[in-house]
Design a protein around this nucleic acid. Structure first.
Lengths: 170, 170
DNA sequence: ATTGATCCTTACGTTCACGTAAGATTCGAG
DNA sequence: CTCGAATCTTACGTGAACGTAAGGATCAAT
């Protein structure tokens, strides 16, 4: 056999960290708490090796963490969906799986996806509401400013309009 | 003067905590780090008293913290908008403020609102994208399930459809 | 005035999510 | 094989955001 099976871009922990925008320590920690799978068959002391799949998994974890603001523990539960779907893909390759078993896994994944979606929906709705409220408030404030300017227009030279956004550095 | 000025529903810290769904400790902590104003003129040892305005302020703080996932420090900066607007209202009552000063405060508030809105917009967009992706994935998973069911329909009795959502308790 | 509930301040404790340091080991290049 | 860079394990440290406990004071009702 030619050396092709193991040659699917094996990254080391530092590379993975740079790509995902985090640190090796964080990756090891996520592995420790079960958010990332322990990189298969690794005798103690050997370096961890990652593939593209792990890059995506890590990025997904970080995105969910950021957007949903969950603890790593809750995140772990929520991410059962990914595992179920990974299971399906793995069993697909092995091909010796009954349709009944496949259905089981798919239904499981679907249920987890339902939970994720529900969480995301609620938050998206809340954020959207907040956005509307802020827009509304901003509109009122700006209207008041214009009113003030209109009143003084008679006696003073026109004031400069409000800048759309402060573009300088904080 | 009749005793009406001080009679606008004075809550104690425990009441405020219950209403806002938090604890007295948290409220004191928020006051300590400057997220909540120190309840006006309080000699050491006396109980804190709150009004409806503080209820809303606290709820707003908690909402932003939850939805944006910021540190209390960043939140403090962000909430400068509220203070600017509170200033405007306060000065409105005193009535001896020049239009120029009012305009200044309003412009300041408007700028802070811009910053808030930008933050909220970005997050709302990200969440919305995530929601779409999850919906898409879920659709694909369900389609696969239906395909499996269709295939087995010839040889086996029809499988029960997938429940819309697990309604049991976690 | 007494009292029970609530609150005060002060201060140490805790959990989460990593950071940092140390000493040994592994890996890829030459 | 050698060597330097990166990684390994282990373990202690840290900042944020509160929790908890102690001892005393305040407040509303009786």
């Amino acid at each position: 056999m030619s050396a092709e099976k193991t040659r699917e871009q094996t990254l080391r922990i530092g590379d993975l960290a740079r790509i995902a925008g985090t640190t090796p320590r964080t990756i090891r920690y996520y592995e420790e708490v079960g958010l990332l799978p322990e990189t298969g068959e690794r005798a103690a002391g050997r370096h961890r090796l990652y593939t593209q799949a792990e890059v995506e998994r890590l990025q997904e974890v970080m995105r969910l963490k950021d957007l949903l603001g969950l603890t790593l523990e809750s995140l772990k539960e929520l991410l059962a969906a990914e595992e179920a779907r990974a299971e399906v893909r793995a069993q697909l390759r092995r091909e010796n799986v009954t349709p009944a078993r496949r259905r089981e896994l798919l239904v499981e994944a679907s249920g987890h996806l339902d939970r994720q979606l529900e969480l995301v929906r609620v938050r998206a709705a809340e954020l959207s509401k907040l956005q509307d409220e802020l827009s509304e408030t901003r509109k009122r404030v700006r209207r008041k400013i214009r009113e003030l300017d209109a009143r003084s227009e008679a006696t003073f030279p026109p004031q400069p309009p409000v800048a759309a956004s402060a573009k300088g550095r904080p």
